[in-house]
Simulated scan of single mutants.
Amino acid sequence: MSRLTLSQLSAFMKLAETSSFRDAANELGVSQPALSRTIQHIETRVGVRLFDRDTRTVTLTPAGEKLRPLAARLLGDYETVFRELQEFVEGRQGLIRIAALPSVASALLPSAIQSFQTRFPGVRVEIWEDVGELVHNVVRDRAADFGIAPPPDLSSDLRYQELLKDTIGLVCREDDPLAAVAEHQWSVFGDHRFIAMSEETGMSAMVENGLAEAGVVVERLFNCSAATTAAALIKSGQGICALTRLTMAEIGSPALVWRPLVDPVVARSIGIVRHKARSLSPAAQAFVRELERQARIIRTGETPAAPALGLVHNA
């Protein structure tokens, strides 16, 4: 038995539906003789009559009755497959896997995902949160579609697109007199108890560079691995700290304030890290455009709120 083409299956189904060569031919947009030849070819290929014909009616034979649900299933699967492909190509379906710094995941991704899924509800988003170098490795290993992190080292397999600058600032309690000052010199840390971030964090190197360039010597206290720990210590009156703006947004505490540090201004670049040899899916491309829009909002001074979303997080 030879296999039938999709157009032959469609012709068979239309004739079975209408029980009329004239009506079926009209709906298919072909002539009656052409449809009659198609049906003859189909019956020759399957090796059995599929329709009983007389001058007035066309009815299915037992073999035709057997073929009808099978043909309907094949045509339905065909439509489903290409509808899903079309939705994927249009960015309306798929999975986006993102690796990101915790501060970025907290401050930038929730608003981006909320806006994106309003337009593309069929797209699922997964997030891996980790430090910068590990984000780069996840992208390099192709476990994530892209990462959001500081620039990678010069590499043949990763490329970088900056989204924004994440600036270091002073963090203190809202009732601290330092909160009334719009910006601070780095020397402020020489006169106050300084809560330090541990060397394993990316924050530590940025702060050390700022202190060194300003020529400020400080006594480092606690050496926190997590910004949330530093924030709790500040709130309990143990001292002040230097954190980036996005990290402050991650903490999200109304009891604390962030003030820029100047002379020098120290900032890290945050952007999209992707594999040079891997194309982004249409959905991922659309999500990157949404991230660019959210980054513009942050650059204008309006840090997006972080609504609660049902996301999949993988540590």
Score class of each variant (00 low, 15 high):
R124S: 10
T118C: 04
S111Q: 12
V138K: 13
F116K: 01
V135L: 07
R119P: 01
V135N: 14
R140S: 11
F146M: 01
R124Q: 11
A144D: 10
F116I: 00
G122F: 09
A112P: 05
D145M: 00
G147N: 05
E126Q: 15
R142N: 11
V131P: 01
P150A: 11
D141I: 09
R140H: 08
Q114D: 13
A143H: 12
P151C: 02
R142I: 03
I127W: 06
F120E: 08
I148R: 01
T118Y: 08
H136F: 05
D141Q: 13
D130M: 15
P110E: 11
G132V: 09
P121G: 03
V138A: 07
G147I: 01
P151D: 09
S111K: 07
G147F: 08
I127T: 08
D130G: 11
D130L: 15
A149G: 03
A112K: 06
P110R: 04
A144S: 13
P151Y: 00
L134M: 13
H136E: 14
A112Q: 02
V138I: 15
V131R: 15
S111A: 15
V135T: 09
S111T: 04
L134T: 14
P121Y: 08
P150D: 03
H136D: 14
W128H: 14
T118W: 03
P121H: 00
V123W: 00
G122D: 01
F116P: 03
F116S: 05
A149P: 03
F146N: 01
W128K: 10
H136M: 09
F146V: 01
Q117W: 02
P110A: 08
Q114A: 14
A143L: 15
G147P: 02
I127G: 07
D141A: 14
E133I: 05
V131Q: 13
G122K: 08
P110Y: 10
P121L: 00
L134R: 15
V125I: 15
A144W: 03
V123H: 07
L134G: 06
G132C: 10
V125T: 11
P150M: 08
F146I: 00
V123P: 06
E129W: 04
N137Y: 12
R124N: 04
R140Y: 02
I127H: 06
G147A: 05
Q117I: 03
S115G: 08
R119E: 13
I113P: 00
L134H: 14
E129I: 11
F120N: 12
P110Q: 07
P151V: 09
F120C: 12
D130I: 05
S111V: 02
P150R: 10
D130T: 15
W128L: 12
V139W: 11
R140W: 07
H136L: 09
Q114M: 05
Q114Y: 08
R140M: 09
P110V: 04
N137P: 04
E126C: 12
A112L: 07
I127R: 06
A149L: 06
